[in-house]
């Protein structure tokens, strides 16, 4: 597939809008459809497309397996630490109200970090599962 010029050029055109759309879905999730989960899947699809067109080695130079393996638990930790921070500030676990000077701002910060945690875990999980499949040879 590496020599197919149509696929290579088409993929190049799709990659950047795909990542941009993932960021839009992530940060616009408060106002429109989407959120961390969908954005993570779309961004992972961008990396997987790159891996399919340019080979696994090229993709792993871009997003290495070691990085992906660290990002999977990092997302859960980011999510859980939002809960711990709100506890430290005097609220309940995952109660975002104390995170900022007024409750509504606190909620917005809380949702932002929680969605970021979801994004990290989903994005890296999808890539890790693809890498695990793609790095095995057919028996």
């Amino acid at each position: 597939m590496r020599r197919d010029i149509v696929l290579r050029v088409a993929a190049k055109f799709i990659m950047a809008p795909l990542i941009l759309f993932a960021l839009y879905v992530q940060f616009h999730g408060d106002y429109g459809p989407g959120g961390g989960f969908q954005a993570g899947v779309i961004a992972a699809a961008g990396v997987i497309l790159y891996a399919i067109i340019n080979g696994l080695g090229a993709a792993q130079r871009l997003v290495s397996m070691a990085l992906v393996e660290r990002l999977i638990p990092a997302g859960v930790l980011v999510y859980a630490s939002v809960g711990l921070v709100s506890m430290a500030l005097g609220g309940n676990f995952l109660d975002y109200n104390p995170l900022a000077h007024d409750p509504v701002h606190g909620q917005e910060w809380g949702v932002f970090f929680v969605e970021a945690g979801v994004f990290l875990t989903v994005f890296s999980s999808m890539i890790a599962i693809y890498y695990a499949f793609a790095s095995r040879r057919a028996s």
Binding site: G29, V104, Q107
Partner: peptide, 10 residues
């Protein structure tokens, strides 16, 4: 409560 218009996200 949250200032988030998308109820699903909230």
């Amino acid at each position: 409560d949250t200032g988030i218009p998308n109820v699903v996200t909230a």
